[in-house]
Design a protein around this nucleic acid. Structure first.
Length: 376
DNA sequence: TGTTAGTTCAG
DNA sequence: TGAACTAAC
């Protein structure tokens, strides 16, 4: 997209200076750093992350300065900051807020990031995705701030681990941006050639229940409701909810990506596509097996007290923990359906996870052995 | 980066 | 008996 724009502008005789500032490490920098497959970008996440970590990071001391050629053209006057309803706030108010949020996070909460990204009801994550996607803070600024924080000699081992995890999150973000930069075919085409024709469904009777957070699986539903309520979903819940759509319902990852795109506060197509392809097992790296999450097991391990489920699913506030995370077989399944004080009853499971996952894996295996290999 | 089945080993 | 580790999908 950017390259097409650049080409068109240059053809029209307008000078263009392209500057990568969405990622912390520009895609072409790591591509240049690697030896094999010169200049074509990384399709392997692991290889990219290694190269990323070795990339020298010059100190960020000043804002990036762009040399923008001045071009005379007819145009309505550009809107001024005050016209955006900001009450006359200075135009960099977004930047200052984002920077302040980043600094506040790094001061202390960041030291628990490792736990934060695993446990949905745990300590806070950085919540910088929206600011990063809109450019009110640059990834390299965040990265520099992390490096600076990590220079603290009195950090505990676990705290250092958290800062490393934070860095790694930025690296993974860069990986997906890099994929979009080099493999810009169609954002809808799975990068994994042999998965391009896997028959994912576009419809499923439970698709609406998934969207509304009424699948009967608390971790999935809590995530979807958090998304609707706040424009953000915890990464653990994202993985489980996405896996549920792709594998339990067998629905195309693009359906899920587009459903979330309307609600998510961040706006980054490259990351949405990259993450969804990753979960669906059709992304850059050939998954040896689809990572099918067991939504109940995930809840048991990562939301053992049901705090996250209860926070976002009012119907479950009175339900004891075993009902939330245990095995609702014939016996205690009904427990969840009980109307509580006249509230809407929490639905029973829309599909049986064990059976659905087994069915999907069988279809997946058949495809990989047959048509998938034939189609190369 | 996940799950499950089957194994080993401590208590 | 169950935690912990391994292999295989």
């Amino acid at each position: 997209m950017q390259r097409r724009l650049q080409a068109a502008l240059e053809e029209a005789g307008i000078g263009v200076l392209a500057v990568h500032d969405a990622s912390a490490v520009a895609p072409d920098e790591t591509a240049a750093a690697r030896t094999a497959d010169e200049g074509r970008g990384y399709s392997s996440r692991a290889a990219y992350l290694l190269a990323w970590a070795e990339q020298p990071r010059p100190p960020v001391t000043a804002s990036l300065r762009l040399a923008v050629p001045m071009v005379e053209c007819d145009s309505d006057p550009l809107p001024q900051a005050a016209e955006f309803g900001g009450g006359g706030e200075s135009p960099d108010v977004g930047e200052r807020h984002a920077r302040a949020a980043c600094d506040a996070y790094l001061a202390a909460p960041a030291l628990q990031y490792a736990a934060a990204r695993e446990v949905p009801a745990g300590p806070p994550t950085a919540r910088l995705s929206a600011a990063l996607s809109f450019g009110t803070i640059a990834a390299r600024t965040v990265l520099a701030a992390i490096d600076e924080r990590a220079a603290d000699r009195f950090l505990l081992v676990e705290e250092r681990t958290s800062l490393d995890a934070l860095r790694r999150s930025l690296a993974e973000r860069d990986f997906f941006l890099q994929l979009a930069w080099f493999f810009e075919g169609s954002p809808d085409a799975p990068l994994q050639a042999r998965m391009r024709h896997f028959p994912f469904a576009r419809e499923h009777p439970a698709l609406t229940a998934w969207r509304d957070g009424r699948t009967g699986y608390p971790l999935v539903d809590a995530g979807m409701r958090q998304l609707h309520a706040t424009g953000w979903m915890h990464p653990r819940a994202r993985a489980v909810a996405a896996s549920f759509l792709c594998f339990d319902l067998g629905v195309d990852w693009r359906v899920g990506r587009d459903a979330w795109e309307r609600d998510l506060e961040e706006d980054d197509a490259a990351l949405a596509t990259g993450n969804w392809q990753w979960i669906a097992g059709v992304g850059a790296d050939l998954a040896q097996f689809p990572r099918v999450y067991n939504p109940r097991k995930q809840a048991r391990v990562y939301d053992p007290a049901g705090a996250y489920a209860r926070r976002w699913i009012p119907e479950l506030r009175g339900v004891p923990v075993p009902g939330l995370t245990g095995m609702p077989r014939e016996g205690n399944e009904g427990q969840l359906r009980l109307p509580l004080f006249g509230a809407d009853p929490y639905p029973g499971p829309v599909v049986d996870h064990e059976r659905a996952a087994r069915d999907f894996l069988r279809r997946y295996g058949e495809f990989r052995r047959g048509a998938g290999n034939a189609a190369q």
